[in-house]
Amino acid sequence: MTNRLTTRFAELSAYDRAGFVAYMMAGDGDSQALLDALPGAGADVIELGMPFTDPMADGPAIQASALRALEAGMTLRGTLAQAAQFRKRDKETPIVLMGYANPIHHMGWEKFAKAAGKAGVDGLICVDIPPEEDDELRAALGRQGIALIRLATPTTDDRRLATVVANTSGFVYYVSTTGVTGAGSGAVTEVGEAVDRVKRASGLPVAVGFGVKEPDQAAAIARCADAVVVGSAIVDAMHSGGVAGAAELVKRLSSAVHAARR
């Protein structure tokens, strides 16, 4: 089964261009409008945050965003509905859901996978389900052609890396620093070495995220990674400047990333 993620990363590679991955929170502000605007602003892949009450791997920006979204009534079903709405108009841009285990577990792995498949979702990043615990979820997602994207971090040594990349697909998300989302990113030289290590072990594209905020910084990472992820900064821009403000930031960041290897 061809997955939009595979196709998108193959295209990027063919043009020797790094991809830009934009994270946004479903339900925080007019998120449907932002979602629809992201491809036009230069997002190659969209990470759609599923709000959760207890986001223990997230920094203040995404925590606050999740609480605002929940306050506004967003649910997992609502998030999937926004993805489905987006997919009616955009058949190419991959959507990766990102969030925590409990809402998915509550819906049921199988039921969630089917609903996500129907909504045109291409991948899932579940922060608090490590490889040791993801058998059932991964199998359910696999039946729908959805990639379960794993995270590698600075604490992932070579032995552990083999476990992390086994049975994975889509791409690998390299967390550039030990810490929560939105904190400072890792030094670019170290990130570059880590990306090479993860690429060799996985044979998959590697996207780098956590703490990337500025176009210069994004461009530096784009020179050594297949894609750059920005989350907290976009979430903040959406909160302070609405859809236009967030789209503007995405334009600046994606231009920097796309031009980085020229």
């Binding site: 223990m56 791997a57 285990a101 922060v127 608090d128 389900i129 490590p130 040791e132 615990e133 794993r150 995270l151 590698a152 971090t153 600075p154 604490t155 992932t156 040594d157 552990r160 992390v164 967390v175 030990t178």
Partner: peptide, 20 residues
Amino acid sequence: MRGRFGEYGGRFVAETLMPL
């Protein structure tokens, strides 16, 4: 071995914490 008490327990943490 997986830290399970029947179907409860386990190790549901972010990857950064797994080695720890």
